[in-house]
Amino acid sequence: MSLITPEFGLLFWQTLIFLLLLLLLAKFAWKPILGSLKEREDSIDNALKMAQQAKEEMQNLKAGNEKLLADARKERDQMLKEGQAMAAQFVEQAKTTASAEAGRITQQAREAIQQEKNAALAEVKNTAAQLSVDIAERLLRRELADPTAQQKLVDEYLKDVKLN
């Protein structure tokens, strides 16, 4: 049983060595260990604070990006509206110009038709007059082929003409 129950001397020396070791550890090891733990805790706190700041900055940047994106969309929509308005104005102007040009061409065509009509009427009148002269000439030649008929015609004209 002597192996299981320790003696007083052994307990004394074990307790003394334990206390001495405890004092040595307290003087030399615990302060550096606690200091390094404190330093580690501070660095972890700083890292957490920096992570929180980075998170806030990212949220601010994200909000700024979303605002810029919204502004860009707004500007794009405005530019599209202006482009559509300009296109509509250009189309309207082209329609007006085309309508005016069509009116001018129509008026020129009417004037040309009227001139052609007048020229055709003048030509018909000239042709009718020429035909009348030709018919009259042929008739006169046939009737005046005889000298007695010529004398008779001259006499008739002289009766119709009165001298003043």
Rank of each mutant, 00 (worst) to 15 (best):
F18M: 10
L16G: 01
M86T: 10
G103Q: 11
D71Y: 03
V133N: 09
F12K: 09
G64P: 01
A129R: 06
K62P: 03
T127L: 09
I135K: 12
Q115E: 13
A98E: 09
A109G: 00
R73M: 11
A109S: 07
T96R: 07
T97S: 02
Q52K: 08
G103A: 08
A145F: 11
E156A: 14
N164F: 04
A47L: 06
D134N: 08
D146W: 09
L10Y: 08
D45E: 05
E75V: 13
I4D: 11
A51Y: 02
E92W: 01
K27Y: 01
L10S: 10
L19E: 05
F28M: 00
R138V: 11
K55H: 07
K159N: 07
E57L: 15
M1Q: 05
V124A: 13
R110Q: 13
R76M: 10
P6L: 13
I17G: 05
N118K: 08
E143Y: 15
E101T: 10
L3N: 12
D45M: 00
G64W: 13
A87F: 04
K81C: 00
K38Q: 12
I135C: 05
E7T: 05
G103H: 04
E75T: 15
E92R: 02
K152H: 12
A122F: 04
A119Q: 09
K31E: 12
A88V: 01
S36N: 13
N46A: 05
E143S: 07
R73A: 11
A100I: 06
Q151W: 07
A102R: 07
G83Y: 09
N65C: 05
S43L: 14
K95A: 00
P147W: 02
N126V: 08
A51H: 06
V91E: 15
Q108N: 05
P147E: 13
M79Y: 10
L25D: 09
K125I: 05
L24N: 01
L163C: 04
R138F: 02
D146H: 14
A88L: 10
L24I: 09
L24T: 01
I105R: 14
Q59Y: 14
L80D: 05
D77F: 07
L61K: 14
E143A: 11
E143W: 12
T97N: 03
N65P: 00
A100N: 10
T5Q: 14
Q53W: 01
L139W: 09
I105M: 13
A70I: 03
A109T: 06
T96V: 06
L3W: 05
K159L: 12
A26C: 00
A109F: 06
F28V: 02
